[in-house]
Design a protein around this nucleic acid. Sequence first.
DNA 1: TTAGGGTTAG
Length: 655
Amino acid sequence: MISGCRPQAQNLTCLTRALLATTPTSPPPSFVLEANIDVYALCRQRRFHEAFDRGLHLRSLDAARCLHSHLVSSHSNIPTTLFNRLIDLYCKCGRLPDAYRVFSEMPHKDTCSFNTLMAGYSAVGNIAEARRLFDEIPVRDHFSWSSIIACYTRHGSPFESLDLYRRMHQEMRGGFLNCSNKFTASSALAASTAILSYRHGREIHCHIVRAGFESDAVVWSALADMYSKCGSIKHARQVFDLSSDRDVVSWTAMIGRYCDAGMRKEGLKLFSRMMQMGVLPNDFTYACVLDACSELAAEGLGRQVHNHMIRVGFDPSSFAASTILHMYSKCGNIEKAKLIFERMPLPDLVSWTSLISGLAQNGHPTEALHYYELLLESGMKPDHVTFVGVLSACAHGGLIDKGLAIFHSIKEKFKLKHTSDQYSCIVDLLSRAGRFQEVEEIINEMTMKPDKFLWASLLGGCRIHKNINMAKQAAEALLEIEPENAATYVTFANIYASAGMWDEVELIRQTMDHKGVVKKPGSSWIEIRGKVHMFLVGDASHPDAKKIYALLEKLQIKMKELGYVPDMNYVLHDVDEEQKEHTLSYHSEKLAVAFGIIATPSGTIIKVFKNLRICGDCHTAFKFISRIMERMIIVRDSNRFHKFRYGICTCGDYW
DNA sequence: TTAGGGTTAG
């Protein structure tokens, strides 16, 4: 019995009993399962359409077989409609060969018979068979065209799909208005979106408006999708706002579009609006919104979403559940993430990987490896993403031998090919440890071209070990791939600066000016009582700026008493020492931490988020501040978490 | 009786 269908099955028990009671012959054979007794009874009554409805609801192969045997053994003329429904049922149960057998043995096939079988092949991605049937249909109707167009769109052939959309209009000779309907239009729109063709999309939009079938949620959703991907998110929002028939899918899609475009706050605003309108979110909505919370590190809001999910009920093994885990982990609450994981009855590989990567980023490499061992013990096979998490745990923890052993096991034990991400991890691990000779050997052994992530990892390692020669090689390779990336110039310049090579620093600065490369401004933010406060370097725009600066000055004095020496290597330009110290004191992360201290009661954990990597001087300063203020300070930078407590950081200064 | 749109981890 299909467990999900139990309530409906129970509802029908009375009906079943009544039907069987009126049937004078023997009880159903033993192979007829409980859920299918209704189907069996309805067949005996020759109420075939109702039996099909029930079978389709259950998606039951037994029901299909039961109906098949009744139809075949029936001596009267069976209408084509019933055979068509049988084909459909077999298709929906994933039994294409049975569907085909029914189709080929039918005495009279109509267009619907072809359409139904074609949809079956389309659903399993057998494009060739679907097309063969389409070509054989003597008289094609709207269903035939919409099925084949959707088939090509769905299975990655958008050009074919648009070609057929055009051909449909020629062959049906009715002009666009009579041929296109909401099904063909939405599929053709999806095809235009796939090839990012605004022109095609716009043309189809015109057909939709002229033909007047725009009041349909799917058409609107496809339109908004096309505009957001080929035109602009603003147009997409206009379409969304104008649509009269919005369902949970179109709301979710619009929220997702904002998140994809990096406009996460807009996405979250729309989510609140959706809730106000009484639209019930589904797993996709939760996944979208929780992901936005993760990126914004808005744990407060994430927790509200989680609580809502608990109230309405959700499947703890669904992908939405793994997104909750990810959200807590990305917000620096790894304990809660672990709790969510432990409560999962059957964690999937995504959840395992998410926890392992989360532990690695949150500074618990040994625990990450412990969960990796548990994953192996569970019998689940790790995939290439799991290995990225495990290798990054080794890299962050300085576990070099373990990392190397796991890296080699990917090929030898798990018989998988190394991916470029895994190469980046191993280069990260080795170059952080200063083992540049081995890095060179690995790069030479690679079967693929090293990508930007690998070179960026190497450049980062060179910064730690002041390896100027290797840094030059990495920076040149990196700039060849990404000539506009300011981070490369800045890191490279910082390496020169730390070696006191100011002429070279100046040369890099001039190159940046010449090429018009602008350094991405560092920004940090902190969530206080549900409100996000954002800071830039030297920012005085915050209402509490005076208090923030006064506190930082006081802290500066106390830190120096305890032995803090500002690290000038993190200032790009060759300005005088006093000026450099001044710039360092007001980095965005320092402003955010100071505001956190002011705005929360003593003892509260301060959680700050930065869009770039934390600066080395701020890292040192926060160790002192955590001691002076007796507070735990958590900083999530673009790379990982740093937890400062009692004057030390969980990263062990290994970052 | 048959057809269309949204998806999680580094």
